[in-house]
């Protein structure tokens, strides 16, 4: 046979007879594939349609408030429904601050629990610990809120007061811990939110950590790493992207949390860095004021919902970028 320059140019070899009994044409078994593809596509599109529908309907309902206030809806903190003033900045601040507190407290604890259950705990303790943490997620948020307002707020006020009197005048620290302490405050809301996001952040982090290849652990141990050095050099770098993702999901949960925050944040809209001061959040004010609102007031509350929606999406987009950034930097070239 002469050397073929390319497969495409070669005619079928006449010496090889065609066996007519062999049919490689489709036997129709692929219809299932196309049906499945349509169903999956419809399911995927449905999510987008619902999302777009919600965004559109709420924006339209909120339009009277948006058009009345203009950009002031986002940049003013003057919320005075009786005089038709709807500036949401203080609520936006409250949502961001309480969620940030929740992350600062909740994420390290969650990573600690995840590392403990995956790396340190004796085998017989792993399941019970995991189970109890998951159980936290099953507690209704109103129960957290009631516990926060009835138990946590009064009991933690003395702690706030002593921190306040200890470091409330220290430059720098006074920025966070100054002002008059209140049981219902940004800090209390942040604490409750921290407890509420721990289950989801823990369970996602745990799953990410469990995917760290054994070969990575062995690489570190093989070099004479202690357990902590192994965790720091093999487990955490490998799972960093996933842990950031878990954190962002926790952040989404914290920002959207309504009733628990409404009960403990103090319902006193103000922009301050004093963590022990009362404040208010977007979701909280909607829950607290919806019943007494009408007209433009209602539109403004719906507008808060739209802003919350937008902020949440924004945070998620940023989170995805961050995750991708970490993954690209660490796992590929």
């Amino acid at each position: 046979m002469p050397p073929a320059s390319s497969v495409a140019e070669r005619a079928p070899d006449p010496d090889v007879p065609v066996d007519a009994s062999i049919s490689l044409a489709s036997t129709g078994g692929r219809r299932g594939d196309s049906i499945f593809r349509l169903v999956a596509l419809a399911a995927g599109l449905l999510v987008l349609v619902v999302l777009a529908g919600i965004a559109f309907a709420t924006t339209r309902q909120a339009w009277p408030a948006f058009s009345a206030e203009g950009i002031g809806f986002l940049t003013s903190s003057d919320w005075d429904p009786n005089n038709g003033k709807f500036g949401a900045l203080a609520f936006i601040w409250g949502t961001l601050l309480s969620s940030a507190i929740a992350l600062v407290i909740g994420v390290p604890i969650s990573i600690g629990i995840a590392l403990y259950t995956n790396e340190m705990a004796p085998r017989r303790l792993r399941r019970p610990v995991t189970y109890v943490i998951d159980l936290l997620a099953a507690i209704p948020s109103v129960v957290y809120g009631l516990w926060g307002v009835l138990v946590l707020a009064p009991n933690i006020l003395p702690v706030y007061d002593s921190i306040n009197s200890a470091v409330g005048d220290v430059p720098g620290l006074s920025w966070l811990f100054g002002g008059k302490a209140s049981g219902r405050s940004f800090m209390t809301a942040g604490l409750i939110l921290a407890i509420m996001i721990i289950p989801i952040v823990t369970s996602l982090s745990r799953e990410v950590i469990a995917t760290v290849p054994r070969s990575q652990r062995e690489a570190a141990y093989g070099m004479g790493a202690t357990r902590w050095e192994m965790i720091r050099s093999a487990v955490l770098p490998w799972s960093r992207g996933g842990i950031v993702g878990a954190t962002m999901l926790g952040l989404g949960r914290a920002m959207g949390e309504t009733i628990a925050v409404a009960l403990v944040i103090g319902s006193n809209a103000q922009i301050t860095t004093h963590l022990f001061s009362p404040g208010d959040s977007m979701a909280g004010v909607i829950a607290n004021q919806w019943g007494e609102s009408s007209g433009t007031y209602s539109a403004a509350l719906i507008g808060l919902g739209v802003v919350l929606f937008a902020v949440t999406i924004l945070v998620n987009v940023i989170a995805r970028r961050v995750v991708r950034h970490f993954d690209e930097r660490l796992k590929v070239a």
Binding site: M223, P237, L330
Partner: peptide
């Protein structure tokens, strides 16, 4: 841990850390 500092090991599958080449060697 002390034993493994004196006795190095190379594994079946290459398992560099997801770090820079320099940091891998310097580990």
């Amino acid at each position: 841990v002390e034993v493994r500092k004196r006795i190095g090991m190379v594994f079946q599958k290459p398992n560099p850390f997801p770090k820079s080449i320099y940091d891998n060697i310097a580990f």
